[in-house]
Amino acid sequence: MLENFPSLNNHNLPYPDTIHPIVVHFAIATVLFAFLCDVIGYFTRNHRLFEVGWWNMFFATISIFVAIIFGQFEAGLAEPYNAVEPVLTLHTFLGWSLSGILAAITAWRFVIRSRTPQKISIYYLAAGLLLTVLVGIQVYFGDELVWVYGLHTVPVVEAVKEGLLQ
């Protein structure tokens, strides 16, 4: 049965390069842009920016789940060594937590949009700020996985295969 699956390349993936960072960067950008639009809209009283913020939150919520699917798949193929496991576990936990938080804030934003499309509350903006901070922390851990621990980089994949990293 395993012969039906594609073989893994030198990044330890069945496809040319990691997909998780591509999708997750879209989610990050849309969350940050949504928050920016809502803040600017709040202070300038430009309610059209609230619509832009809403749609960015909507697509961020969809894309974070796609990012998690690829992240889980690629983390499973990474063969993490002992030093990287705590960071990968924290990154995974925070990613799943962020998906729930983002979905809840997006649902709240939908209710706000349905009831008062030309206003948002300062409490929603505070939640958006908290979400932005959590996204920043998650970005830090994701960067650490790639730039410090080298997951899915050729030298680290080779070192793990040769038993140099455990």
Rank of each mutant, 00 (worst) to 15 (best):
T153H: 05
G76E: 14
F73D: 06
L77M: 09
G41L: 09
G142A: 06
T89F: 06
Y124M: 11
R48C: 00
L98P: 04
T116G: 01
P155G: 02
A78G: 14
V148N: 12
G41A: 05
L102F: 02
F141K: 04
S99M: 05
E79I: 00
T61Q: 12
G150Y: 09
A60H: 05
K119L: 09
G142M: 04
I122Y: 15
T153Q: 03
V154I: 12
L98G: 04
T153I: 02
N56D: 06
F93V: 01
A107D: 05
G136A: 04
Y149Q: 02
R48L: 09
R48D: 13
P86V: 04
G41W: 13
I101M: 13
I68C: 00
T116N: 15
E85Y: 00
L130N: 13
D143Q: 04
V139C: 09
E79C: 00
I62M: 10
T44E: 13
I64N: 08
V84L: 15
L129E: 09
L131T: 08
S121P: 12
L90H: 08
T44K: 14
G95I: 01
A127V: 02
I112P: 01
V154L: 09
E79S: 10
Y124A: 04
I105D: 13
Q72L: 06
A107I: 10
N56I: 00
L125T: 12
V156I: 13
E51L: 08
F58D: 01
V156L: 07
R115E: 14
L125G: 14
Y124N: 13
T92F: 03
E79A: 10
L94D: 06
H47K: 10
A60Y: 03
W55N: 00
W147M: 06
H47A: 04
F59M: 09
L49H: 05
F43G: 02
G76T: 07
L131N: 11
I122Q: 15
Q138S: 06
I62A: 12
G150E: 07
W55R: 05
I112Q: 15
V154C: 00
S99H: 01
F141C: 02
G95Q: 07
V157S: 03
K119P: 01
I122A: 14
T61S: 12
V111G: 04
I101N: 07
Y81G: 04
F58E: 10
T106I: 08
L131I: 08
L134C: 04
Y42D: 07
L90Q: 12
T92R: 10
V146T: 08
